[in-house]
Design a protein around this nucleic acid. Structure first.
Length: 348
DNA sequence: TATGCGTGGAC
DNA sequence: TGTCCAAGCAT
């Protein structure tokens, strides 16, 4: 087997390509600054990596700018109110990340004097930091040759070595191959190069093999199956759930409740609702509820049709609290219900 | 190892 | 319209 020892050529080609075409992102240090000895800020790199978990660069950028403007250091973030962080995260999804982000910032301040651990092993012990994020921060910030494996790396390795076994079973083999390619020099730039390649040229559909820096080295391209890899086990189809949301208005206020820390939209504000998330509590008070129609929303594992009921009664609610809310602070599902009740307000 | 957990964009 | 998919982690 040719891959019995480390392979240097792909990393060389990828770094050459990265030096030509690296994309500017607000959490990256420009090549010019790096030449002057500027190091990436672990706080910013960590935050970007958490936001980028299962989320595109396009979706993350504005959130990253707002978070770092409002909380410029890990100590600032650690001192933030939970509700402010959850509100700022609203719309980005996977809300456990926001809770872990805050828990991690507080752990860094409390246990490490406000300085992030300078190794992948140290990072890995922090809340919300898994194998990928720990390796990425260590490689980018500390030049540790950690093996960085995300969805992009899996795809690039599967194609480069024509791995035909389907995911997730093929994962250990793809990690092994990624380890063979990881260079001792510039491991952070290398990791970002592979991910940039996966996000642009070596894309899931219609990979641009003709302009790929690894053209000629790629086994899948040579046998004409690059676009078919990586193979994946078929996912079960999503069931449809139904529910009701109760939008009670009073003056400019709406009735909201803080959702449970764990589970769907955990820790976020939402309208009292039932029938779709395990709850079945009924209306927050007896009143004449107007049927505003339904909103549709799709979560990771089910479709939701949520009937929206609205009332202006001044009855005493048994759940929730009337609040003035910025609709941008609501998770998208709840924002959809809000927009049905207040069609005049501008969408974000 | 399998499942739960958001959202918006591409096709 | 529907389906797939993204720089994963916790349990």
């Amino acid at each position: 087997m040719r891959d019995a020892q480390s392979q240097q050529l792909p990393a060389v080609k990828l770094l050459e390509w990265y030096d030509r075409s690296a994309r500017l992102m607000p959490w990256r240090v420009s090549p010019a600054d790096k030449a002057r000895g500027v190091r990436p800020d672990p706080y910013r790199v960590w935050m970007s990596e958490v936001m980028l978990q299962q989320t595109t660069v396009a979706a993350v950028t504005a959130y990253f700018q707002r978070f770092t403007a409002r909380w410029p250091t890990v100590a600032d973030l650690a001192a933030a109110e939970d509700a402010d962080v959850m509100a700022e995260w609203a719309g980005l999804g996977y809300y456990a990340r926001a809770r872990n982000l805050l828990a991690c910032a507080r752990a860094v301040v409390r246990d490490y004097g406000g300085v992030f651990p300078d190794s992948a092993a140290g990072m890995r012990a922090l809340p919300g930091v898994g194998p990928y994020t720990a390796a990425a921060v260590a490689a980018i910030c500390y030049d540790e040759p950690a093996v960085v494996v995300d969805g992009n790396v899996e795809r690039v390795m599967a194609r480069l070595f024509a791995v035909q076994d389907p995911l997730p079973g093929a994962k250990p083999e793809l990690v092994r191959l990624a380890g063979l390619l990881t260079p001792a020099l510039r491991p952070g730039d290398y990791a970002q190069a592979v991910m940039d390649l996966g996000a642009t040229i070596c894309s899931p559909r219609n990979p641009a093999c003709g302009i790929c820096p690894l053209l000629g080295l790629c086994a899948a391209q040579q046998i004409g199956i690059a676009a078919e890899l990586p193979r994946k086990i078929a996912k079960p189809e999503k069931p449809v759930r139904q529910g009701v949301a109760w939008v009670a208005t009073r003056g400019g206020m709406v009735l909201l409740e803080r959702r449970a820390e764990r589970g769907l939209l955990g820790g976020m504000l939402g309208f009292p609702s039932d029938g779709w998330d395990g709850s079945a509590l009924g209306a927050p008070f007896a009143a004449e509820w107007r049927d505003l129609g339904a909103v549709k929303h799709t979560f990771t594992h089910f479709h939701l049709v949520l009937q929206v009921m609205q009332s202006d009664s001044d009855a005493n609610p048994q759940r929730g609290e009337f609040m003035l809310v910025n609709p941008d602070d609501l998770p998208t599902l709840m924002r959809k219900a809000y927009d049905l009740a207040f069609p005049d307000k501008k969408p974000r």
